[in-house]
Write a protein that binds this DNA or RNA. Structure first.
Lengths: 126, 126
DNA sequence: TCTTGACATAGAGTTCACTCTACATTGTAT
DNA sequence: ATACAATGTAGAGTGAACTCTATGTCAAGA
C-alpha cells in the first residue's frame, strides 16, 4: 500500500508538518509520485514506528539521522547499526534504573505526606 | 550551614546561571545577606535535590514552580502537594512501563541484527 | 470552467530550558 | 588604597524539536 502524507499522518499520529520536518532532517525519504507528491509505503510505516521508539527512548534527531544514513547504505553497515543500538540499549538500561530509583524515593515522599496530613489533622482537632 | 551561589553551584552540580534562572522561575527563593548576595541553606540543598528528581522524571519547570508555591504556603497545602505527587507517580509508572516495552523491542532488534550479520558473513564466504 | 481541498516549498515563529554577555557592585587579600 | 575575584541585574543568544504562515500547484467534483 501507498499513502499520501495526509493518510500517513493519521496512520502514524505525526503531524504533516512533522513528517516534512523529519524528511528535511534526513530521517525518512518517501518516494514521490508523478505530481511530486510524497508516497509513503508500508516500509515507511514500520520505519517510522522504529524512529518513534528511538525518540521515545531519548535518542536525538541527529543520531537517528545518522542511523538512517547507515540504514540507507545497506548491508555493509549492519554491524555499525548494531553497535549503535547496543550503545543505545546501555543508555536505556541506565535510564530505566534511574527512573526506578526516583520512583522509590517518590513513593517514600508520598508516604511522608500521608503521615504529615494525618499529623496536621490531629493538631487541628486537639 | 549557609552557602554562596558559587559554593551551592558546586554542591548541587547546577551552574550559577541555572540557579539564578531557577530562582527567577520561582523554583527556589534563597535568603539574601547584607550585601544582597544569595545565601543558600541546607534546606535549599535538599529542596534542590527534590527539584532535580522531579525534573529527571519529566516534570516541567512550570509544574515544579506550582509545587514550590504550594510548598511555600505551608501545611494547608499538604494534600494538594500529595495529590500532585500521586499524579506524577502515575505518569512515572507509565513512563517506566513504556521504556521497558521499548527495551524488549530493542533487544529483539539487536538479536535480529546479530542474525543478519551472521547471514551476510556466510554469503560472503559462499 | 470554476472552485475547493490536499499537497508542495521556503522560511518564520514558538516553546522549553538553559547559557551567556555586558556592565555594575561588593568582599577580600596585599 | 587598590586590585581582583565573586556576585548582582537585565536582557540577549542557543539548540532542540517542532509548528505555523505565505504562497504556489494541481487533480477532481459541481
Amino acid at each position: 500500500m501507498e499513502y499520501s502524507i495526509g493518510e500517513f499522518s493519521k496512520l502514524t499520529g505525526l503531524g504533516i508538518h512533522t513528517l516534512r520536518y523529519y524528511e528535511q532532517e534526513g530521517l525518512i525519504a518517501p518516494e514521490r509520485n508523478s505530481g511530486n507528491r510524497r508516497c509513503y509505503s508500508d516500509k515507511d510505516l514500520t520505519w517510522i514506528a522504529f524512529i518513534k521508539r528511538l525518540k521515545d527512548t531519548g535518542m536525538p534527531i541527529k543520531e537517528i539521522k545518522h542511523y538512517a544514513e547507515l540504514r540507507a547504505a545497506g548491508d555493509p553497515t549492519l554491524s555499525d547499526r548494531m553497535e549503535m543500538l547496543v550503545q543505545h540499549r546501555q543508555a536505556l538500561n541506565e535510564q530505566i534504573a534511574r527512573l526506578q530509583e526516583h520512583k522509590i524515593k517518590l513513593d517514600e515522599k508520598i508516604e511522608f505526606y500521608r503521615n504529615e496530613i494525618e499529623r496536621t489533622k490531629n493538631n487541628v482537632s486537639s
